[in-house]
């Protein structure tokens, strides 16, 4: 399976080199591309200096646009799957081959790297929000998902085209619900995540609340009105 590791990065000058080097070292069998999402720091410059394949967005599009660019690139270059490894260093690439093996073995369309499939649950606001989304997915699709908000996802060939070209398919929990409902085969694989290595997280309390509201509205309401399309 030809896999492209997509590394979305927004102002990650402090982390991007170590993340890319780790990908190169741990999974040399896969190609990777950094997507610089219009960073204002030296992210792009560092990538060029180190010769990393760089998809350099001329303006900030947000995570959806960044990941979608990577998928578009993968689609055009004949890749079979795309895995998202965040530019902040929280995703460990050593799990990717295992996720890929699960995908091939079971013929899956999406493998989610889950923090909670085996690991213990901790109690925090973030996990409360995650649990709420998991329950929303269970309620609307019947499928048990333990880590809907995990960004570490492996997208298979069958859904790549839709993911790359359709704006409604953002790399977010609502898409997981939508994909399941459209008949995509989704499973989780247990992974361990780290705290972001350096710098600041994008999620402020206010943003988190808006994010939750948006996700729940999509899962419970808006998705049901969407035009039916095949994957």
């Amino acid at each position: 399976m030809k896999i492209l590791v997509v590394i979305p990065a927004y102002n990650e000058a402090q982390n991007i080199v170590s993340v890319a080097e780790e990908v190169k070292r741990v999974v040399p069998q896969y190609d990777f591309a950094v997507v610089n999402d219009g960073s204002r720091d030296e992210t792009a410059k560092l990538c060029r200096e180190h010769g990393y394949p760089l998809l350099d967005l001329s303006a900030n599009l947000g995570l959806t646009g960044a990941v979608q660019t990577g998928m578009r690139y993968a689609l055009e270059n004949g890749y079979d799957a795309v895995v998202q490894i965040d530019g902040d260093g929280q995703h460990d690439p050593r799990f990717v081959p295992e996720m890929a093996a699960l995908m091939e073995q079971k013929g899956l369309d999406l493998v989610i790297g889950s923090r909670f499939l085996e690991g213990k649950r901790t109690k925090s606001m973030r996990h409360f929000g995650n649990g709420l989304l998991n329950r929303a997915i269970k309620l609307t699709t019947g499928k048990r998902i333990t880590d809907a908000t995990s960004g570490m996802r492996l997208y298979g060939k069958r859904i790549l085209r839709t993911m790359a070209t359709d704006r409604d398919f953002s790399p977010e929990p609502d898409t997981v619900a939508y994909l399941i409902r459209r008949g995509a085969k989704v499973e989780e694989y247990p992974v361990v995540m780290r705290e972001r290595a350096a710098g600041e997280s994008y999620l402020s309390p206010w943003r988190s609340i808006r994010y939750m509201g948006h996700m729940l509205a999509c899962i419970f309401l808006i998705q049901w009105f969407r035009k039916r399309r095949n994957l």
Binding site: A33, V35, P53, L54, L55, D56, L57, S58, A59, L61, G65, Q68, T69, R72, Y73, E76, R167
Partner: peptide, 20 residues
């Protein structure tokens, strides 16, 4: 917004293809 997004995405991809 969608048109701009598409232009930005496509330019980035073309640039990388050219570099390669």
């Amino acid at each position: 917004r969608h048109q701009t997004t598409e232009v930005i995405e496509k330019t980035a991809i073309e640039k990388l293809n050219e570099e390669k």
